[in-house]
């Protein structure tokens, strides 16, 4: 029993070690990638453009719900003018980066894992190696950097659409004063403390989600079952890692104030 745990723990540590070596290898692919931006653009399409609609619609609804719930609570204190602050602060600081990362891992991350895993299962990666092409640099690196770049843009899109959704519901439906909505928001949301920190968060989450996704795909057992397990693991681990690191990042950022 105890021995089983030991083996399990050792295996886990070994995997984490492999994941870091893998990341280093991927990062070494950056210079080569800069010479072939076409590869990056292609993957940005798969990872970013195809996630755009999902992110925008989710952001819209999250913003609208925030406005409804916020208005409900704030009206008890006669503080409806602060609705803009509430919606924007929740979105920019937390929901934008976190929800985008979770949706992103479900949409793009799982697809990356499955794609790379299938390429491994069908010997495409092995085939590239035998053609003297490094699959980590040729296949993994463009996908990794595409994910890393797309995440902050998607998170910003999510927050923007969310704020607009909150505006439609708050100002349009619930009759909050338009001037107060924007003015209070601008007075309370700080560019460095809120916007920049939100971007930092989304960059970190982008790194975590795409790293896990490409590693799980590359490390998958090369069978149909192995790939499907890797895909599930990719989404589950991403969610854990995003929420956990969100706590750490938030604690660090609040202490820095």
């Amino acid at each position: 029993m105890l021995q089983g745990w030991g083996i399990w723990a050792l295996g886990g540590v070994q995997r984490i070690g492999r994941a870091h070596i893998f990341l280093a290898h991927v990062l070494l692919g950056l210079p080569g990638l800069l010479l072939r931006l076409r590869l990056l653009v292609r993957e940005m399409y798969v990872v970013g453009v195809l996630s755009m609609l999902l992110i925008a619609i989710s952001g819209l609804f999250v913003g609208m719900v925030l406005a409804l719930q916020g208005h409900n609570v704030l009206s008890e204190f006669d503080a409806e003018q602060s609705l803009g602050v509430l919606v924007a602060a929740s979105l920019v600081r937390e929901l934008g980066p976190v929800v985008t990362a979770l949706l992103f891992s479900g949409r793009a991350g799982s697809a990356l894992t499955a794609e790379i895993g299938l390429m491994k299962a069908t010997e495409q990666l092995s085939g590239m190696e035998m053609m003297a092409v490094d699959p980590i640099k040729r296949v993994v690196a463009p996908r990794f950097f595409a994910g890393l770049l797309s995440m902050p843009l998607l998170a910003a899109l999510f927050s923007m659409v969310g704020v607009l959704g909150g505006y439609f519901v708050g100002v349009g439906l619930l009759g909050v004063d338009e001037g107060a909505f924007w003015a209070q928001m601008q007075a309370k949301i700080d560019f460095e403390e809120d916007i920049i920190n939100g971007i930092i968060k989304s960059l970190v989450f982008g790194l975590i989600v795409t790293w896990i996704a490409v590693f799980e795909g590359y490390d998958a057992v090369p069978t149909a079952e192995g790939v499907s397990r890797a895909t599930t693991r990719s989404v589950v681990y991403s969610a854990f890692a995003v929420l956990g690191s969100d706590f750490v990042l938030t604690a660090l950022m609040l202490r820095g104030e």
Binding site: V49, M52, V163, I195, I199
Partner: peptide, 23 residues
């Protein structure tokens, strides 16, 4: 499409900076 995506992303960042925050 990718150009459009990057454009919209930066527009959103600009919106957050100028319209939502105190920048």
């Amino acid at each position: 499409w990718v150009g459009l995506f990057v454009g919209i992303g930066f527009l959103a960042l600009f919106f957050l900076a100028m319209k939502v925050s105190n920048l």
